[in-house]
């Protein structure tokens, strides 16, 4: 990570930090703050904020709310994901980095992290809720994440805001959502038109039941005279029997 990118055009600049995925998501960049840094509107703010939340947990809710204004809100990979829905935004990564800093200060297995995340989620606006979900991704990528936070991902999957649904199927959701919920999440992304690149570990987890659901959806769309979207085709092709 010595080659820090100078351009905000992240997909050329940001190297792959998680094997097996084409592009690093917000959770990945929360762990690679040297890569995230040049994408930030005010890098010093994040340094100061990470120190603050590590020292005093009471500062977290306020700094979490301010992250969009201070870190920026742009997409991490603007030319392939101009809205930041699929791979996340700069503020998603910054919020996740704040949670990682807090988790590090509290130490492994410290109680209360799931409660903190649950409060941040329920008292957060859409961007803050995404930040919590991306933080769970970051924790999952590097080790055990609090499974008591699974209901937060389930809540996000009931939303109609595409960015929330996409943030719920990252590494945390991929590992901890139950099979039924996860399959419905994948199908919901197809319905919403969110690229399936948002789904962590899709090929590894896809099973015969998801294949059946995808075939039924394809048949339904054909009967209605509608196109089969490329992601649905991909699901038909890559799903294991």
């Amino acid at each position: 990570m010595t080659d820090a990118p100078r351009s905000p055009d992240a997909e050329r600049a940001v190297p792959t930090v998680r094997p097996g995925t084409a592009l690093p998501g917000a959770g990945d960049l929360a762990l690679a703050t040297d890569v995230l840094r040049p994408l930030l509107r005010d890098p010093e703010w994040l340094d100061t904020a990470r120190t603050a939340v590590a020292t005093d947990p009471a500062t977290l809710p306020r700094l979490f709310a301010l992250a969009g204004r201070r870190a920026g809100r742009g997409p991490l990979h603007p030319s392939v994901d101009p809205t930041g829905v699929t791979h996340g935004t700069v503020d998603d990564a910054a919020r996740a980095a704040l949670v990682v800093a807090r988790a590090d200060a509290a130490g492994p297995g410290a109680p209360g992290l799931a409660n903190t995340l649950t409060t941040l989620y329920h008292q957060g606006d859409t961007a803050e809720r995404r930040g919590v979900l991306r933080a769970l991704d970051a924790l999952t990528v590097r080790g055990p994440a609090p499974t008591a936070a699974v209901p937060l991902a389930e809540d996000a999957l009931r939303a109609n805001d595409t960015s929330l649904v996409a943030a719920a199927v990252g590494p945390f959701g991929g590992r901890h959502l139950d099979d039924h919920t996860w399959r419905h999440a994948v199908l919901k992304l197809v319905f919403l038109g969110v690229p399936l690149q948002a789904v962590a570990g899709l090929d590894e987890r896809a099973d015969a039941e998801l294949s059946r659901m995808a075939h039924d959806l394809a048949a339904e769309r054909q009967a209605a005279g509608r196109d089969i979207p490329p992601d649905l085709t991909r699901l038909l092709r890559t799903t294991k029997e």
Partner: peptide
């Protein structure tokens, strides 16, 4: 974006 050509509840 993302694509809106699909039926959905959004």
């Amino acid at each position: 974006a993302p694509g809106v050509e699909f039926e959905g509840s959004s």
